[in-house]
Design a protein around this nucleic acid. Structure first.
Lengths: 216, 216
DNA sequence: CGCCGTCTCGTACCCAGGTACGAACTCTCG
DNA sequence: CGAGAGTTCGTACCTGGGTACGAGACGGCG
C-alpha cells in the first residue's frame, strides 16, 4: 500500500512540480493539494494523508500555524509533516520542529531528497536538509541557551513595529522618533526581538522580516 | 519536429519540476539544464535550443545578464527566452524585456501557462503572466513615468561578494574570514558599496540586496 | 611606458548599536 | 486583589560598525 501524500503550497507550479516528482515513484500517491493553511488543515483531516508536504510561507494561515493546528486537535495518529521552504533561517527550523514537523527541506535540495524525505516521514523518521543540519549542530555545540525558554513566535505588537522599522533600514535614533518613544525603549525592544528570533544583529532581524513576508 | 528547450534555474528541484511538466508534452523536448547564468550561456550556444526558460535570480551571472550576453554576440537567430521568477517586480519585467526576453512568467502561474509560454516563444510570440500583464497595462495607461531605479550599478565583483555576505547577516569579522581578507579590507569595500548604493548602514545594503533579487 | 581601476592593508578615531542591570506604569485576567 | 505581560524609561559599559585618511601591488589599456 502506497504512501499517501498531501501537498500544501500556495504556488500552483510548485505543487505541480512536487506532484510530478512524487508520482514518478511507484509507492507514493498524491491524494490532494492545498493552496493555503486553512485548506491544508481541512484536507488533512478529511483525507488523512500519511505525509503532508507543507510550505512555511502561505497567505493567511501559514505552514507553521497549520501544523500547530493539526498537532493540536486535528488528527489522532502522529503527525508526519515535512516543511518545505526556500530559506533556512534558524527560527523557522526551530518553530517548525516545535510545531510538530518531522522534516525540513530547502527547495534547492534536489528531487531525490524530497522523495527520501517523504519515505522517511512515512516511517515517522526525520530528514532535514544537510545545510540546515549543519546549522542545527552548530547551535547545539555552541550551547543554544535561550531556546528552551522561548515559545514560538510571540512578537508583541510593539516589537513588530520595531522589526518593521529595522527592516526599512532605520537607525535606532530614527525609530525612537518615528515611534515616539525614547532610545532606551527602542533598544529594549530590539534586544527582546533578537532573543526571540535568535538573531545576532539588526541585519538578521531585517532579513527575517523580508523572509517571513513582513516586508516586501 | 519538437520544440527543444533549455532550462536554467539554480534550484535543482525547480529544474526537475519544469522538466517533468514539459516532458508530458509530446512536441516538447528538454535538451539541457543549467544551474547558473554562465552555464546557461554556454549551453545555449552549444545546444541551440528553440526556447530557453531562464530564472532571473541565479548565483553569479543572473538571468538578465545571461539574456543580454546571448542577445549580444551569442546566437544569430532571434532569442526565445522566457523569464521565470517567483516575484513580479516591475523593474524586473522591464529589464527582462529590455534584455530581449519574449516572455515573463510567475512561478505560481500553473503548469499549463508554462507549456503555453514555451509554445508561444517557439513561434517568437510573447506570453506574459496575466497578473503582470495587468500591471504593465497600468503602467502604460498611467503613462509609465517614475522610474527611480538605478539602471547600472557599477558594483565590482568583490563588492558583490561583500554585499551578499552582508545580506546573509554576517558581521564584518565573519566576512573577513569567509572572504579570506583583512578587516580593514572588508570595511573599505562596505564603505564603497554604501557610497554607490547611497545606503546609510549595512542593513540598507541587505535590504537593497533583497529588493534587487541578489538574495532570496 | 604611464594611467587608471581594483583589491589589498594599515592606523586612528568616533559613535551607533548591543548588553546588563533595575524600575515604574498600565492593563488583563483568574 | 494579586500575578503576569507589555510598554516605557533610566544608567552604565563595551563592542562592532562606520569614517577618514594613506599606501603598495596588480593588471588592462591607450
Amino acid at each position: 500500500m502506497p504512501t499517501r501524500v498531501l501537498i500544501a503550497d500556495d504556488q500552483a507550479m510548485v505543487r505541480a512540480g512536487f506532484r510530478l516528482i512524487l508520482e514518478g515513484e511507484p509507492d507514493i500517491e498524491v491524494v490532494g493539494e492545498a493552496a493555503d493553511g486553512d485548506q491544508a488543515v481541512r484536507l488533512a483531516r478529511e483525507l488523512r494523508p500519511d505525509v503532508t508536504l507543507m510550505d512555511i510561507r502561505m497567505p493567511g494561515v501559514d505552514g507553521l500555524r497549520a501544523t500547530e493546528l493539526l498537532a493540536g486537535a486535528g488528527v489522532p495518529d502522529p503527525l508526519h509533516v515535512v516543511m518545505v521552504t526556500t530559506f533556512g533561517l534558524d527560527e523557522n527550523v526551530h518553530a517548525a520542529l516545535r510545531a510538530g514537523a518531522c522534516g525540513f527541506l530547502l527547495k534547492d535540495a534536489g528531487p531525490n531528497l524530497l522523495i527520501e524525505a517523504v519515505h522517511a516521514a512515512a516511517h515517522g523518521e526525520a530528514l532535514v536538509s544537510p545545510a540546515i543540519t549543519t546549522r542545527l549542530l552548530a547551535h547545539f555545540t555552541r550551547g543554544g541557551s535561550a531556546h528552551a525558554t522561548e515559545p514560538a513566535n510571540p512578537l508583541t505588537p510593539r516589537e513588530l513595529d520595531v522589526v518593521k522599522a529595522v527592516a526599512r533600514g532605520e537607525t535606532n535614533d530614527e525609530i525612537c522618533r518615528s515611534l515616539v518613544v525614547s532610545l532606551p525603549t527602542v533598544k529594549t525592544h530590539i534586544g527582546a526581538v533578537k532573543r526571540k528570533l535568535s538573531a545576532r544583529n539588526r541585519t538578521e532581524i531585517a532579513i527575517w522580516a523580508w523572509e517571513s513576508g513582513l516586508i516586501r
